[in-house]
């Protein structure tokens, strides 16, 4: 239902524009700051227009080893990308299979399994980081890509969302497939996956950003520069011996760290919104 009242439109737009400005401000400031010369940022006032350095700091970051980290920014971004993709794809694969089992199969302790998965929603990484570290260390996976991705590869949230979606599908769909001679695997591939496309896309976006933004786990488990991520490096960049953090580099790195999630969202925007809104299947 839509209301058609001009005053309401004006009010709504005002609120939306204010909201957009508030959200945009830090991003704009970071972009502006990243183009300033190092000295300009220490004058005490924040410049509100582009500075004289242009893209110089970005090129520096991408070509030379980053201060405090030891590898160039492209290596950091690649690591982050691998981690984010690994986590997002892993979570989707595990979640959709787990939800498939929970909804379409009758096995002992099914409800119990569901609740066990559900309960893990209440345990964020920070709570279980010590035992997780122990396990990963015992497996000899510290400071490696598998060690970076594996502990974060299962998602109760995604499992739950897929379960909810599967439960909205009419059970006759599976029965029709059974009558048509499709086994459980065929049904999953031919019918369930195509129907979940938009949900998969929406969850991929969410999980990619979740993976990209991981901070604590890589910080704890990845000690060598070869496996450092962008988000980790932001903190290290600002630690400086002489007390003046290189803000021009830090803001440039922030903008770099921002780009891949933005690209993912822009590319998948249509599907993302469809997946969250679409109920008519």
């Amino acid at each position: 239902m839509r209301y058609h009242r001009p005053n309401l439109d004006v009010l709504a737009h005002t609120i939306l524009i204010i909201g957009a400005l508030i959200f945009m401000l830090p991003v704009v400031l970071a972009v502006l700051a990243s183009t300033q010369t190092p000295g300009a940022l220490f004058s005490g006032t924040l410049p509100l227009w582009f500075g004289g350095s242009g893209l110089e700091h970005y090129l520096t970051l991408l070509s030379e080893p980053v201060r405090g980290v030891g590898v160039p920014a492209w290596q950091l971004m690649l690591n982050s990308l691998l981690m984010a993709l690994g986590i997002a794809i892993g979570k989707l694969v595990f979640a959709i299979l787990a939800a498939y089992a929970l909804v379409f199969f009758r096995f002992p302790f099914r409800r119990c399994c569901f609740w066990l998965i559900f309960v893990t929603l209440m345990l964020p990484i920070e709570v279980r980081i010590v035992p997780t570290y122990g396990v990963v260390a015992d497996l000899g996976l510290l400071d490696s890509y598998p060690g970076l991705v594996l502990p974060l590869i299962a998602s109760a949230t995604a499992t739950f969302l897929f379960r909810q979606f599967f439960m909205t599908l009419p059970p006759e769909l599976m029965e029709a497939a059974r009558v048509d001679g499709a086994g459980p695997w065929r049904f999953f591939i031919d019918i369930l996956l195509p129907l979940s496309r938009t949900n998969i896309a929406a969850l991929f976006v969410i999980m990619f950003i979740y993976g990209w933004n991981q901070y604590l786990w890589p910080l704890v488990a990845m000690s060598s520069a070869d496996h450092a991520t962008v988000v980790m490096s932001l903190k290290r960049l600002t630690i400086s011996m002489d007390g003046t953090p290189p803000w021009h580099l830090a803001t440039a790195m922030t903008v770099l760290a921002l780009l891949p999630p933005v690209v993912v969202i822009v590319l998948m925007q249509r599907w993302f919104i469809k997946g969250l809104v679409d109920t008519e299947k």
Binding site: E172, E175, A176, A177, R178, V179, G181, A182, D190, L195
Partner: peptide
């Protein structure tokens, strides 16, 4: 036997056509 092995066909109340 599984439904497919019985060689039967079924028409459902809500048709259960594959939407995609």
């Amino acid at each position: 036997q599984e439904p497919a092995e019985r060689d039967i066909a079924m028409v459902f109340q809500n048709y259960a056509l594959y939407p995609h």
